[in-house]
Design a protein around this nucleic acid. Structure first.
Lengths: 131, 131
DNA sequence: ATATTTGTTATATATCTAATATAACAAATT
DNA sequence: AATTTGTTATATTAGATATATAACAAATAT
């Protein structure tokens, strides 16, 4: 598995798992229809508790990114199943805001921030504007 | 004061205070050299405990955004005092990444995300590219 | 000079989150 | 038939969040 846990991060373990699975999907390393490892298997792999992975999976399900089939497994939902509601768009914007604001106050220029966005897109293997 | 607390947010109160002060500085509502209200005054204003505001101020100081002069007050540091170290730039990129990744996986296009960035810049009253 | 305000420090308490540990259940899969 | 699955339950530990109250000593205001 591609997931790497930083035990002393201020980001909770279940949140690290959630983020890295999302990034894996964004990169295309995992596609819709693919099954995630069982909570027990991934937990053993990462050296964490089963419930920690379970919490992450349910967070992913709440976001509409996976579907959990009880007693069976977790499947990455198709892009058609993912609505992208106005609420979700608003939430993304709400999440971007404090990061950008902090960057600006610390002295970053608009160009620097946009350059970082391009790096993030590139890291997610998404064709960025004018690349 | 311009700060509005959402008591039932999943974002801790001290973090809400920190973010809104940063946004206030980004918008130019507060300038370098300005003093923040005393922790007691702001706490009373917001209806929260003194220590909650104090924690926020120390977070701002750790980020290099304000300087706390004991027994005196908290002053917004000058842009010259703010280094913008490679570490800070890396941190900003690290903060942007999960937000962008989630947006993409939920089905947002690069254009939609860049449009949201422009809205954020506009909200922070920063002239965005080609506006 | 005196009184007030300031951030600091200390102690205490309550609540919530995060994480682990263990166990059992019943359905799905092998 | 045996194993694996997500689920549910209970319990414990540790840390974060937030409040409450109090006192201290330096800075500021009157």
């Amino acid at each position: 598995m591609f997931i790497q846990i930083e035990p002393q991060s201020d980001v909770p373990i279940y949140e690290q798992v959630t983020r890295q699975i999302i990034e894996g999907i964004a990169r295309g390393e995992m596609k819709p229809g693919d099954t995630l490892p069982s909570v027990r298997a991934l937990a053993a792999d990462l050296g964490v508790n089963m419930h920690t992975v379970n919490k992450s999976y349910h967070e992913l399900e709440a976001k509409g990114i996976i579907v959990i089939r009880p007693k069976s497994g977790a499947i990455i939902s198709s892009t058609e199943e993912r609505a992208l509601t106005p609420d979700q768009l608003r939430q993304i914007e709400k999440n971007l805001k404090p990061v950008v604001a902090e960057g600006m106050v610390l002295g970053a220029t608009v160009e620097q921030i946009e350059h970082m966005m391009k790096k993030v897109f590139a890291d997610l293997q998404i064709p960025a504007e004018g690349v």
